[in-house]
Design a protein around this nucleic acid. Sequence first.
DNA 1: TTTATTTGAGATAAATTACTCCGAAATAGT
DNA 2: ACTATTTCGGAGTAATTTATCTCAAATAAA
Lengths: 145, 145
Amino acid sequence: MKAFSAETVYALRALLYLAGRRDGESYLSIRKISEELEISFHFLTKILQMLTQKGILTSSRGPAGGVRFFRAPDKVSVIEVIHVFEGNDYFTTCMMGLPGCSDKAPCPVHDLWKEVRTAMKSRLEDVTLAEMGTRTMLERLRLSP
Amino acid sequence: MKAFSAETVYALRALLYLAGRRDGESYLSIRKISEELEISFHFLTKILQMLTQKGILTSSRGPAGGVRFFRAPDKVSVIEVIHVFEGNDYFTTCMMGLPGCSDKAPCPVHDLWKEVRTAMKSRLEDVTLAEMGTRTMLERLRLSP
DNA sequence: TTTATTTGAGATAAATTACTCCGAAATAGT
DNA sequence: ACTATTTCGGAGTAATTTATCTCAAATAAA
Ligand code: SF4
Ligand code: SF4
């Protein structure tokens, strides 16, 4: 099951890595992150650029530059990151992907799918990057292969 | 959320259409199905061919030819169709997609994701094409845009 | 002020997925 | 036997996603 694009997954891994650090004040270079997580540097650059544009990260160029959180990671829910890369209709268009869906004109999998979809959404909008990040660090959960 | 490839979705729509018919004995031409569901004829042909090879459908060439169920649709669970086009590891590889996953070396979203994934799997392996097909017909659920 | 370093932005390339096309093989009806 | 129809099988094309490359702009430190 591939629920998310590569961009979303890379973004989450990078953000969780950032959120798990002790020092959240200083800038961390994208090069460093890409090496740590074994993600293509250039591709990751583009992705984190997007997060900077969307106001989740802030950046600084030049030596000792890099990225850090703009808003504190406990103010950013995972779902927000998903919406950046997957679009805002991610949890409304689904399985069959037929246009013009409504509860009045559903496809056969609507009920089944609605459960899964809303369960997922409600879980993902509750959990913040900070929670997951610290958990990642404390329990030594892995973010790279 | 795009959980499935176009192939899987088209396959399911076609199968639910077939399962919803009164006459399950006779062959129905792929051309007819493609027009009814507004799916590219050639693409659907390839997809239904695969289902024939996998023993879900059986086919007949020539005039009055087409496809019909090989095994009765109440013996085919939705999950089986998914496995044909998405592979058998569909419900084991997931969200982060890191290789070498185990409960001992999980990524940060493992628990969260495991819930969603197993909930989905257990629902999809219970429901058969026959159940959904008749429901589709009786409740006039739509299979096309 | 110069230099080294790092993000920003956009073009390009590779890989995957989605879709199309064509001729061969089978089959029912005339 | 002939013809029209339909699936089969594989190749080819288009679109989208994923990844790479290049150079400009900013910035810190020497
Ligand atoms: S009817 Fe429901 S499940 Fe089906 S495509 Fe529309 S929103 Fe998705
Ligand atoms: S640890 Fe679990 S959730 Fe994370 S990629 Fe592996 S199987 Fe998926």
